[in-house]
Design a protein around this nucleic acid. Structure first.
Lengths: 217, 217
DNA sequence: AGCGAACCGTAACGTACGGTACGGCTCACC
DNA sequence: GGTGAGCCGTACCGTACGTTACGGTTCGCT
């Protein structure tokens, strides 16, 4: 009995019950690491495996839905470029840096990235793409308008917003994400994150501030 | 029949046959992704599973030995700080950056990091620690003397070598490693790597060159 | 030549897990 | 009150894989 299974509605239209199931999957993923078996999810969510398969088609569908459900909950600040000056630009950049560090150092992000990395190693890479789309690329989409606004306002000087973004990304994240993914203990206190965000922002401005461009670039 | 199994000699004293087995495991890991089953390794290496278990105790031991075997083959350039001037410092930094980009973008590194990340998610994190030790921390151990020499020579100005290293790391790697681990196609040509290494080095020097320190740091 | 250790090939075992089937319960709707 | 859809709990199936066991073969050593 082969049936044409409709595409899972990956972005929205989740019932409250389904959200609760995905929350349970999320909690399980964070707590138990890779032990995200269908049986465990069903038990944790107090639902049947049959329901999981009906709602999410298969294990991959459940994982994808879980990642997207988490992504829909995490939204970093969005800013507009109205009346931008150096002070507000600096504050916005620091905010972005701080938000991003908080995200990538959260247990949830670590767990989701781990499962996505594992998944990317085994053929179909949809999960990794979803994580990237909702993580690094979503951040770029939100940060680039700010960078462009900074350039329009004559505060920043760069040739390519993508390149500028990647430099900012590197200055902020450094070795944090890979170390956390590899299991390195590296607790980031609120204060440490604030300091790192300020440092990365100052370094970024030092490299890209208008009329203050360092030689050799 | 319980036997006291001696600790696996994790660093050296591998017979040629054992090295050949680890090479086979490495090739399999790169080609087949996470399908590194004991059966597949035995078949690929033309040895018996019994031998695998005798030599490496269990699957974790085999993975660990494989990682260390690969690490023993990859050695980035080491430099000494004799007669250091800005030109040679720049060249050395570029060399480090280029080597590191080549390493993290290699199929082998990606495969090993993937399996280590997966492993870190499931309890015992030894593999992740081994990868970090032979990757990011080994790089730091080799780069820091150069940075210190640069400071001694009055070329660089920084308070903490670790912090300076992490900034360099961020400027070089940016989002490359996480994107590759998550399955993003991102082929780095030889030329692109060279350009990135030069850019990262210039940015690093702009931030840390002596008497040229940007304001706000 | 004879012996024993090491190793190969393969079969077998136990278990874990993805996926399916089914009986029973709840509840909205007629 | 009847009915049917949706869901829970659980048993079940097939398979993949880690690990062990074992017979046969090679090979160095005496």
């Amino acid at each position: 009995m082969l049936d044409i299974v409709p595409e899972i509605d990956t972005s929205e239209a989740l019932t409250e019950r389904q959200k609760a199931v995905l929350d349970a999957a999320l909690r399980l993923l964070v707590e138990e690491g890779d032990q995200l078996t269908m049986t465990a999810v069903a038990r944790r969510a107090s639902c049947s495996k049959e329901t999981l398969y009906k709602w999410f088609r298969d294990r991959d569908g459940l994982l994808t839905a879980t990642v997207q459900w988490q992504a829909s909950k995490v939204r970093v600040a969005q800013v507009d470029g109205k009346g931008l000056d150096l002070v507000s630009l600096t504050a916005s950049l620091e905010r972005f840096a701080s938000d991003w560090l908080k995200v990538i150092s959260s247990d949830t992000s670590i767990a989701l990235n781990r499962v996505a990395v594992s998944h990317a190693g085994s053929g179909k890479d949809n999960l990794g793409a979803v994580v990237l789309e909702n993580g690094r690329f979503a951040l770029a989409k939100r940060l680039k308008p700010l960078l462009e606004a900074g350039r329009q306002a004559g505060l920043l000087d760069f040739a390519d917003a993508e390149t500028a973004f990647r430099t900012f990304f590197g200055l902020v994240a450094r070795d944090v994400q890979i170390r956390l993914l590899l299991g390195d203990r590296l607790e980031l206190t609120e204060a440490a994150i604030g300091g790192d965000a300020a440092r990365a922002t100052q370094q970024f401005l030092a490299l890209f501030k208008s009329n203050n461009r360092p030689q050799g670039l």
